[in-house]
Structures are given as structure tokens and as C-alpha cells.
Amino acid sequence: MFQEIDGVEVKKQQENGHETIDYDMQDKIDYVFKVVVIGDSAVGKTQILSRFAKNEFFFDSKSTIGVEFQTKTVIINGKVIKAQIWDTAGQERYRAVTSAYYRGALGAMLVYDITKRQSFDHVVRWVEELRAHADSSIVIMLVGNKGDLVDQRVVPAEDAVEFAEEQGLFFSETSALSGENVESAFLKLLEDINRVVSKKALECGIGVGNGDNNVATLKGSKIDIISGSELEISEIKKLSSCSC
């Protein structure tokens, strides 16, 4: 179901017995999905993103200031999807700034630290903030990070499962250090975003009558990010304002 594509161009080569195909990714992207990674400071948001986007982990990682940005391109159900992932600061003084970046987000990964009860207790506040600033159809994945520190656990998985069920969230426990469940959590989130977007498109009649039984191909537009005044956002967000 899932196939990962690293980089803009995939070259034909033999790697571990598997052959990759040479083609330019720029003209192959079907969707750009904006995802935000949120949660308290020091729960491992940046590390989870680095593990997923680049398969990296940094022991000397410092707190994120403002908002940072990474991308990852994958294939889900035959569609080439560019995940545009925003890593938001967890400190209170940046909350007012980062809330503006929820606009256009189709998914959110809400992270807490299984060794810090307070970070889990604050999850309800983060959900409320998402509900207030993000689209009502945003897909949320609740993630308990630092699963490798089992001897320091203070948040039982059962508590998180109960909360996720009450709020209608997906749930997973991960370890950015070992990489356990990081990729599967992101892919599950992207898969469900794709499902929601496809459903909205069908309800709005997009792609009907042109032989496409799924969804019309919507291209993301590339905008200069350095200025900070504009964000690279998928035009897919227009679906959320459909009047159907």
C-alpha cells in the first residue's frame, strides 16, 4: 500500500535486491498535505519529524523556536503525496505565533512524553486549540513518544487509548530514538487524510464525469518560504470550503 520516495528525483538502481525507477518527481506529485506536529516542549516533536523525514536522530537537539519545516514524499493508494510537515514550538510564548500556521493543515500529530505526566495532561488543551484554529475535518494522531524509556513510564497506554477514543483520535506510541512506529504513525495519518480529502472531493463532485473515480489531481503551488509571509500550501485546502 505504501511506497517511499526519497528526494525529488528517483534514479534506477539496485539496492538490497530492489530496483527503483528513474523519473522526475516534480511533475508526479498528486497532492500536497500540510501536517502540523504539536505538543509541549521537549516531548520529542523535532526528533520524530527528523526520524520520519530523514531517518535521523540528534542527541544534542535543542528546543524549536517558532516554526520549522520539512517535507517527505510517499505513495499512498497509488497517489504521490508530498507531506509538508510543520514542527511547532511547544513553549507558551510562541503559542500565539504558531496558531496562525494551523490554517490549511489537513492533519496534526499531537505528541506527549510517556515519562512526563504533565505533557499528557496538557493534551486536552492542545486538542482544544486545534478545534479552535484548524479545519473541523482535520485528522489528529495522538502519539506517546519516548517508548524506549519503558522503565520511566508514568503515562499508562490505557489512559491515552481512553482519551483518544473519547476524542475520536488515532493513537500510537513511538520511539524517535529507535524509530519504532514513527513511520507507521505518519503513514497512517497521511492515509486517513487522503481518505478524508477523497471523500470530500467526491461529495463536491470533483472528478466526476472525467473518468477519474478517485479525485481530480490537485497540484500544490510553490511559494517563497524565506519571506515568512506566505506558506507553501496545497490547493487541496479549497476542498474544505466547498459549499456542498
Rank of each mutant, 00 (worst) to 15 (best):
Met109Ser: 10
Gly78Ser: 15
Asp87Arg: 12
Met109Ile: 10
Met109Thr: 12
Glu92Pro: 07
Tyr94Met: 06
Val80Ile: 15
Tyr102Val: 02
Asp87Met: 02
Val97Phe: 04
Lys82Ser: 13
Met109Leu: 15
Ala96Trp: 05
Lys82Thr: 02
Arg103Ile: 03
Thr98Ala: 01
Gly90Leu: 11
Tyr102Ser: 04
Ala100Trp: 01
Met109Cys: 14
Lys79Glu: 09
Gly104Asn: 00
Gln91Ser: 13
Thr98Lys: 00
Arg95Met: 01
Lys79Val: 08
Gly107His: 14
Thr98Asp: 00
Gln91Tyr: 10
Arg103Asp: 08
Gly90His: 13
Tyr102Cys: 02
Thr88Trp: 05
Tyr94Lys: 04
Ala108Pro: 02
Trp86Gly: 03
Arg103Asn: 13
Tyr94Ala: 10
Gln91Trp: 11
Tyr101His: 09
Ile81Gln: 10
Ala100Leu: 00
Tyr102Lys: 01
Ala89Asp: 05
Tyr101Ser: 01
Ala108Asn: 11
Tyr101Phe: 07
Val80His: 14
Trp86Gln: 01
Ala96Pro: 04
Ile85Val: 12
Val97Ala: 06
Ala96Asp: 12
Ala108Ile: 07
Ala96Val: 10
Ala83Arg: 12
Asp87Gly: 11
Lys82Met: 13
Gly104Pro: 08
Ala105Met: 06
Trp86Pro: 00
Gly90Pro: 11
Glu92Gly: 02
Ser99Arg: 14
Lys82Phe: 05
Gly78Glu: 08
Val97Glu: 07
Gly104Ile: 00
Tyr94Leu: 03
Val97Met: 11
Val80Leu: 10
Ile81Arg: 09
Arg103Glu: 04
Trp86Leu: 00
Tyr102Asp: 02
Ala100Thr: 03
Ile81Met: 13
Val97Thr: 14
Gly104Ala: 05
Ala105Gln: 06
Ala100His: 06
Glu92Lys: 10
Arg93His: 11
Tyr94Gly: 02
Ile85Asp: 06
Tyr94Thr: 05
Ala105Leu: 00
Ser99Tyr: 09
Ala83Val: 15
Ser99Trp: 13
Arg93Ser: 02
Ala105Thr: 03
Ser99Val: 15
Gln91Asn: 07
Ala108Glu: 06
Lys82Val: 13
Tyr102Leu: 09
Ala105Tyr: 04
Thr98Ser: 03
Lys79Leu: 11
Ser99Glu: 15
Asp87Trp: 13
Ser99Gly: 12
Gln84Thr: 13
Trp86Asn: 01
Ala89Arg: 03
Ala96Gly: 10
Gly107Cys: 09
Ala100Ser: 15
Gly90Arg: 06
Ala96Cys: 14
Tyr101Asn: 02
Tyr101Arg: 00
Ile81Ala: 08
Leu106Asp: 13
Gly107Ser: 07
Gly78Trp: 09
Val80Glu: 12
Ala89Ile: 09
Ala100Val: 00
Gln91Pro: 12
Gly104Val: 04
Gly78Pro: 03
Arg95Lys: 08
Ile81Gly: 09
Tyr101Leu: 00
Arg103Thr: 06
Lys82Gln: 10
Tyr94Phe: 07
Gln91His: 07
Arg103Gly: 06
Ala105Lys: 02
Val80Ser: 07
Met109Arg: 11
Ala105Pro: 06
Ala105Asn: 05
Leu106Phe: 13
Ala108Leu: 03
Ala96Met: 07
Val97Lys: 03
Gly107Asp: 08
Lys82Gly: 08
Gln91Cys: 10
Gln84Phe: 14
Ile81Thr: 11
